[in-house]
Measured scan of single mutants.
Amino acid sequence: VLKALERTRQLDIPDEKTMPVLMKLLEEAGGNWSYIKLDNYTALVDAIYSVED
């Protein structure tokens, strides 16, 4: 979780936006981090930006 938060902080995305999206992605992935961690957490960042749209 810390590495995911560090990555999104680099992009000026607050933890308050990151955590709900991260928890949803983890739930959808059955707790499997490998998809979320791919390409420096690209799936997480993309999911956060899609929620903002």
Rank of each mutant, 00 (worst) to 15 (best):
V1W: 14
V1H: 06
V1E: 06
V1T: 07
V1G: 03
V1Q: 05
V1N: 02
V1L: 13
L2P: 07
L2A: 13
L2E: 15
L2Q: 15
L2G: 09
L2H: 12
L2F: 10
L2W: 12
L2T: 12
K3D: 15
K3G: 10
K3M: 12
K3V: 06
K3E: 15
K3I: 07
A4N: 03
A4D: 04
A4C: 09
A4L: 04
L5R: 00
L5Q: 05
L5I: 04
L5Y: 00
E6F: 07
R7M: 08
R7D: 05
R7G: 02
R7T: 09
R7W: 12
R7P: 06
R7H: 09
R7K: 07
T8G: 03
T8D: 04
T8R: 02
T8F: 08
T8P: 05
T8E: 04
T8M: 13
T8A: 08
T8S: 04
T8V: 04
R9T: 06
R9E: 05
R9A: 05
R9K: 05
R9P: 04
Q10L: 13
Q10R: 08
Q10E: 14
Q10Y: 12
L11D: 05
L11M: 08
L11A: 06
L11V: 02
L11P: 01
L11S: 05
L11E: 08
D12Q: 14
D12R: 12
D12P: 04
D12C: 15
D12K: 15
D12S: 14
D12F: 10
I13Q: 01
I13D: 00
I13S: 03
I13G: 02
I13H: 02
P14R: 06
P14Y: 05
P14D: 08
P14K: 06
P14E: 07
P14I: 05
P14V: 07
D15I: 03
D15L: 04
D15K: 02
D15A: 03
D15V: 04
D15T: 03
D15W: 02
E16C: 14
E16W: 15
E16I: 09
E16L: 06
E16V: 09
E16P: 05
K17A: 10
K17T: 10
K17E: 07
T18E: 04
T18S: 13
T18Q: 02
T18W: 03
T18D: 03
M19I: 15
M19L: 13
M19R: 05
M19V: 11
M19S: 02
P20D: 08
P20H: 11
P20G: 09
P20E: 13
P20N: 08
V21I: 14
V21M: 07
V21H: 06
V21T: 07
V21P: 01
L22I: 06
L22N: 00
L22M: 04
L22F: 03
L22S: 00
L22C: 01
M23S: 07
M23W: 10
M23D: 05
M23V: 09
M23E: 09
K24T: 06
K24G: 06
K24Y: 07
K24V: 07
L25W: 04
L25D: 02
L25E: 00
L25A: 02
L25K: 02
L25H: 00
L26Y: 04
L26A: 00
L26S: 00
L26D: 01
L26H: 00
L26E: 01
L26W: 02
E27Q: 13
E27N: 10
E27I: 10
E27W: 09
E27H: 14
E27M: 10
E27L: 10
E27G: 08
E28N: 10
E28H: 09
E28W: 09
E28M: 11
E28I: 12
E28S: 11
E28C: 11
A29V: 13
A29T: 15
A29N: 15
A29D: 06
A29Y: 15
A29L: 11
A29M: 14
A29I: 08
G30Y: 08
G30V: 05
G30M: 10
G30C: 12
G30L: 09
G30S: 11
G30T: 05
G31I: 04
G31Y: 12
G31K: 05
G31N: 10
G31P: 02
G31S: 06
G31M: 09
G31Q: 07
G31W: 13
G31V: 04
G31T: 04
N32S: 11
N32I: 08
N32D: 15
N32P: 02
N32A: 08
W33T: 01
W33C: 02
W33Y: 03
W33R: 00
W33M: 04
S34G: 12
S34P: 04
S34W: 12
Y35F: 09
Y35T: 14
Y35L: 13
Y35E: 10
Y35S: 13
Y35M: 15
Y35V: 13
I36H: 00
I36F: 04
I36R: 00
I36Q: 00
I36G: 01
I36N: 02
I36S: 01
I36T: 01
I36K: 00
I36Y: 03
K37I: 15
K37G: 09
K37C: 15
K37Y: 13
K37W: 11
K37N: 09
K37V: 15
L38R: 14
L38D: 11
L38S: 12
L38T: 11
L38H: 15
L38V: 10
L38F: 13
L38E: 13
L38K: 15
L38A: 15
L38C: 07
D39P: 01
D39T: 05
D39C: 08
D39G: 11
D39W: 07
D39A: 09
D39Y: 08
D39H: 11
D39F: 08
D39Q: 09
N40E: 06
N40K: 05
N40V: 03
N40R: 06
N40F: 05
N40H: 07
N40P: 00
Y41Q: 01
Y41H: 01
Y41F: 10
Y41C: 03
Y41R: 00
Y41N: 00
Y41W: 10
Y41T: 00
Y41G: 01
Y41M: 03
T42L: 14
T42A: 15
T42Q: 15
T42P: 00
T42D: 07
T42G: 11
A43K: 12
A43E: 04
A43F: 10
A43T: 10
L44G: 00
L44H: 01
V45G: 01
V45L: 12
V45Q: 01
V45H: 02
V45F: 05
V45M: 07
V45I: 15
V45E: 00
D46S: 13
D46A: 15
D46T: 14
A47P: 00
A47R: 09
A47M: 09
A47L: 06
A47N: 05
A47H: 05
A47F: 04
I48G: 02
I48H: 01
I48C: 02
I48D: 01
I48A: 02
Y49V: 09
Y49A: 11
Y49S: 10
Y49P: 03
Y49Q: 11
Y49L: 14
S50R: 14
S50D: 10
S50T: 11
S50E: 13
S50Y: 10
S50Q: 14
V51Q: 12
V51I: 13
V51W: 12
V51E: 13
V51P: 08
V51T: 14
E52L: 11
E52D: 13
E52V: 12
E52W: 14
E52I: 14
E52G: 12
E52S: 13
D53M: 15
D53H: 14
D53N: 14
D53G: 14
D53A: 13
D53L: 12
D53R: 10
D53V: 14
D53E: 14
D53F: 13
